[in-house]
């Protein structure tokens, strides 16, 4: 049964991908891309990757779609020029694909428990997590502690993207350096549409709560800072869509957003530095509390909070940067 369902999902994935590439309406492509992400998330779920599935759904299907739509509103929605370099493109694409297929001839059987990945490193995490960290979700343990440095790097990737978009979209267009900005009417939202407004207002607190749950439940079940950040940001974006951007900025002003973005990253880094000051290595949580396992748990909660803050901050900033930009 699962086999069939898996094949069904994968087939749909391929079809969706082809549809995305062939469609010349960009709106349609973006929506299809969202569907693609949802299908991908479902496939991940089938492959026992609950955390990844949740992330892919929140980020791939949710945030990414919002960002694409936000950008499309500013750039136009139709693909004009025909596809170029068909032959060249096919040739260039064919080489790595053939190589990959060549590689398939020697790979371990799917799901085989004697594959190298299940022999080395991986099992150690499963085995040692209860002992060292004692939380149920091994993914969170690896993410937050064993490979916490990667995750710190990842937060800074998000941070970089955030300041990058802020930096790019704070530039005045060269062509109209001297003219005042024509911003979109910031009051306009969907407020005069009754149904979305009522349903939306009803939904927002729940989404928000769900985000908080995902944030703090990350050690026990799927979830954590990234997913939570994305969900919280989504609820606020929804609020902004319904009530108009200005109201949303009253709730969290852009100055506060900057503090959120920087503060989350600093919180994460700060936990690492504290570990250093207390005599451990960078990102060593054992030293945070007298009991190493308690220290680990505390560290993970703190850094996940840092992740959540930065992700929320960055996603909202990016959204506002797009939304606040006048269409040209």
């Amino acid at each position: 049964m699962i086999v069939l369902f898996g094949i069904f999902l994968l087939t749909l994935l391929v079809i969706t991908a082809l549809a995305i590439v062939r469609n010349d309406s960009l709106y349609a492509a973006v929506i299809l891309n969202g569907i693609f992400s949802l299908l991908m998330a479902a496939s991940f779920f089938l492959l026992d990757a609950a955390d990844v599935a949740l992330t892919e759904a929140a980020i791939g299907a949710g945030i990414s779609t919002v960002l694409f739509l936000g950008a499309l509103a500013l750039t136009g929605e139709l693909e004009k020029s025909p596809t170029k370099h068909r032959l060249l493109g096919t040739a260039v694409v064919a080489i790595p694909t053939l190589l990959i297929i060549f590689a398939f001839f020697d790979i371990p059987q799917f799901g085989a428990s004697d594959a190298p990945v299940h022999q080395h490193v991986g099992p150690w995490y499963i085995e040692k997590t209860p002992e060292f960290i004692d939380i149920p979700n091994a993914v969170t343990a690896v993410l937050g502690s064993f490979r916490g440095y990667d995750t710190l790097g990842e937060v800074f990737v998000v941070f970089t993207a955030g300041i990058g978009v802020l930096f790019l979209l704070s530039a005045r267009p060269l062509a109209r350096r001297n003219e005042p900005f024509v911003a979109r009417d910031p009051h306009k939202g969907l407020r005069h549409y009754l149904v979305p407004r009522v349903v939306g207002r009803f939904l927002i607190p729940f989404i928000f709560l769900f985000g908080l749950y995902v944030q703090f439940h990350g050690e026990y079940g799927p979830g954590g800072g990234f997913q939570a950040g994305a969900i919280v940001a989504a609820s606020l974006i929804l609020y902004s869509l319904l009530e108009g951007e200005r109201r949303c900025l009253v709730v969290i002003p852009s100055g506060a957003l900057r503090w959120l973005v920087a503060g989350g990253a600093l919180l994460y880094g700060g936990v690492g530095v504290v570990g250093m000051l207390l005599g451990g290595n960078f990102l060593d949580y054992n030293v945070l509390a007298s009991d190493p396992v308690k220290g680990q748990q505390m560290g993970i909660i703190l850094i996940e909070l840092g992740v959540g803050l930065t992700v929320t901050g960055v996603l909202l900033s990016v959204y506002h940067a797009f939304a606040g930009r006048g269409k040209l």
Partner: peptide
């Protein structure tokens, strides 16, 4: 002992401060 880590985290953690 911490030099390799400091090499990276000094500029990295200064970045959020600089932004503010």
């Amino acid at each position: 002992h911490h030099l390799p880590a400091l090499q990276v985290i000094v500029p990295m953690l200064t970045a959020p401060l600089v932004m503010l």
